[in-house]
Amino acid sequence: MSSPEAMTEAAMTEALDLPGSGRFEGAEHWLPLRVYYEDTDAAGIVYHANYLRFAERARSEFLRLAGIDQRPLYEDAGLAFAVRRASLDYRCPARLDDRLEVRSRLVRLGAASVDLEQRIVRGRQTLVTIMVKVACVALSSGRPSRLPAAVRDALEPFAQQETGES
């Protein structure tokens, strides 16, 4: 066991970076995270489905930092975001105690959906690339619903390209 006094400055700085809401680097959102025991299998390798959990956290923090509060959207407007499609390209495994970043970039802003590219990286190495389409849906019907103007306005600065219907 190490004492607080024995903690190096680098370790303290690293500890202060996690968890949090991440940050924007230009139009790309970066969310740092650490791989915990609960994220891994018996061999200490991240279980494949957990990359989706990491990406979900990053999308939530992206919205939060972009100024979109999901709770009133859900409670007051009766709207929620639901994953319509996701494809994952696994390149290299993450392991117990790895320090990772989920880098999320808005690729397309549609009328009722958002397409994102999310890369999970360790240092300069991309471990997993996730392409995801998230739809805005009405909770009452489960049907697609246009993005509210405030949501669209908050996301437009991050959009790579603007298109019409989704």
Rank of each mutant, 00 (worst) to 15 (best):
R122E: 00
Q118Y: 09
L88Q: 07
A55W: 03
S141Q: 13
L106H: 01
L52S: 13
R105V: 02
A112L: 05
V128L: 11
L147A: 12
R84E: 09
A82C: 05
V151W: 10
L116E: 01
I130Q: 01
L106P: 09
V151I: 11
L147D: 12
A80K: 02
A55P: 05
R59V: 04
A80T: 12
R105L: 08
C92H: 14
A58M: 02
S145K: 10
E101D: 02
R108Q: 15
A66I: 05
E61S: 09
A66T: 08
E56R: 12
R85G: 01
R119S: 05
S145C: 14
F81R: 00
I120K: 03
T126E: 08
A135L: 14
S145Y: 08
L139K: 03
V107F: 00
L106R: 00
V121W: 08
M131A: 15
E61T: 10
A49V: 03
F54T: 06
V83T: 07
Q125A: 06
Y51V: 09
F62G: 07
V128M: 03
R124S: 15
R91N: 04
A66F: 14
L63V: 12
V83W: 13
C92K: 15
A58E: 02
H48W: 10
C92G: 11
G110H: 08
L147G: 14
E101H: 13
P93R: 08
E61F: 01
E117V: 00
T126Q: 01
V83P: 11
L88S: 12
S60Y: 00
A82D: 02
Y51C: 10
D97N: 14
P148T: 10
E101I: 04
Y51A: 08
P144D: 07
Y51Q: 07
L116M: 15
Q118M: 10
V114W: 00
P93Y: 09
T129C: 01
I120M: 08
R57T: 10
V134S: 09
P144W: 01
V151E: 06
P72Y: 01
A86P: 03
D98V: 09
S60K: 01
A112M: 04
N50Q: 10
L63H: 14
L65W: 12
A86V: 15
V121L: 04
E75Y: 06
G78E: 09
G123S: 07
V128P: 02
S60F: 00
E61G: 07
A138F: 03
A77G: 00
L96R: 04
D76K: 15
V102L: 10
F81T: 09
V107E: 04
V128E: 06
Y51D: 07
V128W: 11
R85C: 00
P93F: 09
G78Q: 12
D98N: 13
K133V: 15
A86I: 14
F81K: 05
I68C: 06
L100P: 08
R103M: 03
E117M: 02
D69G: 04
K133Y: 00
F81S: 07
